[in-house]
Design a binder for these strands. Structure first.
Length: 197
DNA sequence: CCGCTGATAATCT
DNA sequence: GATTATCAGCGGA
């Protein structure tokens, strides 16, 4: 018996594994979106996570069911989208960039931008392109308006430190599709510090 | 290509 | 009052 696409991915397991396995999946909102090419993992007791001090009105969805959305406002201006999941409640994966594949014309109009490389290259940018906002906070990702489709094959990944945080900033919990031209920012080379000298 | 800065409001101290 | 899981625009290399 066929299962719904999103159910083929178990969300209640280590959040680092979830962050890696979301790379290559297709995220759609009302049929508009693309391939996930960049993610970041946030743990329950991670000093950089909104959940570190326990449930609050804002992070309520992080402590709700796995496989649902956590959407919050960032810097008073932008929206950021997370996949709730992990080894315990309070974990989530921030989706930082998509390779746009579906509904390009709609996304171009929303972003007032033609260049597909920058259309969904950043957590705030992809929410603007997909029309994601607070009304989607807590919704299940396996039912309309969302769709989260499995990937065809296991892609090659790169990892590095997370972006835009000050606490627990050294752990390499940011993941990307190797060689993708749709990332929010390049990943630092592993030997970058050495080659400066 | 890279780095800097202001915008802007909810959340937290 | 300070911080923030960001971005567009700008200037320089």
């Amino acid at each position: 018996m066929a299962r719904r696409p999103v159910e083929s991915l178990p969300f209640a397991r280590p959040v680092l594994d979830l962050a890696r396995d979301l790379i290559g999946m297709t995220l759609l909102l009302d049929g508009v979106g693309g391939i996930v090419v960049e993610t970041e993992a946030y743990g329950r007791h991670d000093p950089a996570s909104h959940s570190v001090k326990g449930p609050t009105p804002r992070n309520r969805a992080m402590f709700g069911p796995a496989g649902h959305a956590y959407v919050y406002r960032s810097y008073g201006i932008h929206w950021c989208f997370n996949v709730v999941g992990g080894e315990e409640p309070g974990c989530a994966v921030l989706v930082r960039a998509l390779e746009p594949t579906r509904g390009l014309d709609v996304m171009r109009a929303r972003r007032k931008l033609d260049d597909p490389r920058r259309l969904c290259a950043g957590p705030g940018r992809l929410c603007q392109a997909l029309g994601l906002d607070a009304s989607h906070d807590g919704l299940p990702l396996g039912a309309p308006p969302f769709a989260l489709l499995p990937r065809a094959a296991t892609p090659a990944l790169v990892a590095g430190p997370r972006i835009g945080i000050s606490r627990n900033a050294d752990v390499p919990w940011r993941f990307g599709l190797a060689g993708s031209r749709f990332l929010s920012r390049p990943f630092p080379r592993p030997d970058a510090a050495e080659t400066k000298f």
